[in-house]
Design a protein around this nucleic acid. Sequence first.
DNA 1: CTGTATCCATGATGATACTG
DNA 2: CAGTATCATCATGGATACAG
Lengths: 112, 112
Amino acid sequence: MHVDDLPIEQKIKYVQDTLFVISGKWKLPILIAISQGSNRFRDIQRQVLPITTRVLTKELRDLEQNKLVIRTVYDTSPVLVTYDVSAYCKSLKPLVDEMILWGKNHRKKLIE
Amino acid sequence: MHVDDLPIEQKIKYVQDTLFVISGKWKLPILIAISQGSNRFRDIQRQVLPITTRVLTKELRDLEQNKLVIRTVYDTSPVLVTYDVSAYCKSLKPLVDEMILWGKNHRKKLIE
DNA sequence: CTGTATCCATGATGATACTG
DNA sequence: CAGTATCATCATGGATACAG
């Protein structure tokens, strides 16, 4: 089944679902930071400045709920927590690549 | 130049640019409505209910600024205004199609 | 280190009325 | 018809302090 064959209401619904998962100021920057090797809370926060702890916590919880991030708690003292992108998260790559390309071109377009 | 070769900060910046242009509750539904033939303010509003005039005005201005929508004012009485998607707007199709596909699959994924 | 709790500022959105 | 103006509401996000 091809995308173009979907009824318009379905298209809008699916697009809005996707936007809901990835939109906002922080979610993709966080995913990119984690996938580049920032696996600890502080590491991510430093990479994605100026995000606050409160907001970062919430964003990580959202991403975990959507199965894009895996949170692992080690029972050490002090407690160690790691964040990793899931295998499922890789399914976002074509979409993110499209966004990068479009955003890159759009900058030029606006200057015209 | 390939997307993967971009430095991480650039990737994040371009993705955020893209998100800024298309995200939010209304922008893509409005673009879809216009491209399907709703070219007048009232037509769009009826198609994208329950959007208010105030919000629709703002969203259309944003889309116009980003060159995705063309607003034409005819000097008649009463005044006639039409909205059309630009040729540039078509460049969004690969991105929107990816979003539709991903959102469609994501619904299934969350049920697992 | 990894968060939680609290308070507060800001912006986005809605309701309604009104204008040319 | 195509908006603008005004007021009210609400969610989001930031600042800061603190806890385990």
